[in-house]
């Protein structure tokens, strides 16, 4: 019986070694260690042995069984790992294939510029004021020191709807309305919005465009405050190393009036095609609020003074992003719009 047992053991161990996969090995387990297997049979047959041999024989069978079991587990571990490796191998993907696209839109470049300017001034304590695009002649012109008959308010240049109503030609009427509404109180606002002028659309003109204006009114507001404010704006918007310069200019609603240039952000002032070799780029118009404008809105121009400035987001976007044709902003070519997806932070 012992010989029979050893024979069985050798056979089992050979089959374990020969099993090449988990399935074959499981078959070996069932064949040798299963309820109907030879080792179980041997144990069952022990009843026929003399009582004194039984313990010895039982121990022997157990040793064989344990050894076979151990070798089987060992082999099983190897085969299982092999099976996993094969599975992983077969599951390999081409990781260079494109990912599942996430649909994502973005803001119009003009919105991008306007919101950047809004946020900058909000951080300096400004509020955003808006007003109607179809405006009364009074707010668009008269309240801004452009009385009837003034050459700068030619019918040819504005879209009138009736004698007294027109599409606003600038966002300044929002300032006039705000001043009137505030009844003599200090003001600190930014006014963005669409404006309209009677121009033929071409690469540099658009009958509809946007403006963003600022107005500060308070006690002892000085021209130096205007310069300081614009300087902060220029640095935040166009880079910390930007310098500004003011040049005298003329607007009916400010006195003194200035135009602000910034040192060219492309060449740094050396002279290039962006700044037309001058080293400076004209960015905005500004000035101290004309006393007539203050008085007309009910402010005491001896007590309160103010400054105002205005700029064109189209021009800023064109300079910043190198856009050559203003019509791009209103054509909505997806190949244009989707370029303004990424951040510049």
């Amino acid at each position: 019986m012992e010989a029979q047992l050893n024979e069985l053991k050798t056979q089992a161990l050979d089959k374990i070694a020969a099993a090449s996969n988990v399935k074959e090995l499981n078959a070996v387990r069932v064949a040798y260690l299963g309820k109907k297997g030879p080792i179980t049979d041997l144990l069952k047959g022990m009843g026929k042995l003399p009582a004194e041999e039984r313990p010895k024989m039982g121990a022997l069978v157990n040793v064989v069984r344990e050894e076979v079991t151990a070798r089987l587990e060992e082999r099983m571990a190897i085969l299982e790992e092999q099976a996993i490796n094969e599975k992983l191998q077969s599951e390999t993907i081409d990781i260079t294939l494109p990912g599942r696209p996430v649909k994502s839109g973005n803001a119009h470049p003009l919105t991008r510029v306007i919101e950047e300017i809004e946020d900058l001034f909000i951080s300096m304590g400004y509020e955003i004021e808006e007003g109607p695009e179809v405006e009364k002649d009074y707010y668009n012109f008269e309240a801004l020191n452009l009385p009837k008959g003034h050459p700068a308010r030619d019918m040819q240049d504005s879209f009138y709807i009736s004698e007294d109503i027109l599409l606003r030609t600038h966002t300044s009427p929002v300032q006039a309305r705000t001043m009137e509404a505030k009844g003599g109180e200090p003001i600190k606002i930014i006014c963005p919005g669409k404006v309209y002028r009677r121009d033929n659309d071409d690469a540099t003109h658009s009958h509809q465009f946007t403006q963003i204006e600022g107005l500060v009114i308070g006690e002892d507001i000085r021209m130096s405050d205007l310069k300081g404010t614009l300087s902060v704006f220029a640095k935040k918007m166009f880079g910390e190393d930007r310098e500004i310069r003011l040049r005298p200019s003329f607007f009916p609603f400010t006195e003194p009036s200035v135009e602000m240039d910034i040192s060219c952000f492309k060449c740094g002032g050396e002279g290039c095609n962006v700044c037309k070799k001058t080293g400076w780029i004209e960015i905005l118009g500004a000035g101290m609020v004309h006393p007539n404008v203050l008085e007309m809105a009910g402010y005491d121009s001896k007590r309160l003074t103010g400054f105002a400035f205005g700029m064109g987001p189209e021009r800023i976007a064109m300079l910043k992003y190198g856009i050559e044709d203003i019509r791009h902003f209103y054509t909505n070519d997806v190949r244009f719009l989707s370029q303004f997806q990424r951040t510049e932070v």
Binding site: K103, G105, N106, H108, L167, Y196, H207, Q208, N332, V334
Partner: peptide, 10 residues
């Protein structure tokens, strides 16, 4: 997933 457009009022 939408792109912002701007069109004319007139």
């Amino acid at each position: 997933g939408l792109l912002q457009a701007t069109t004319y009022s007139l």
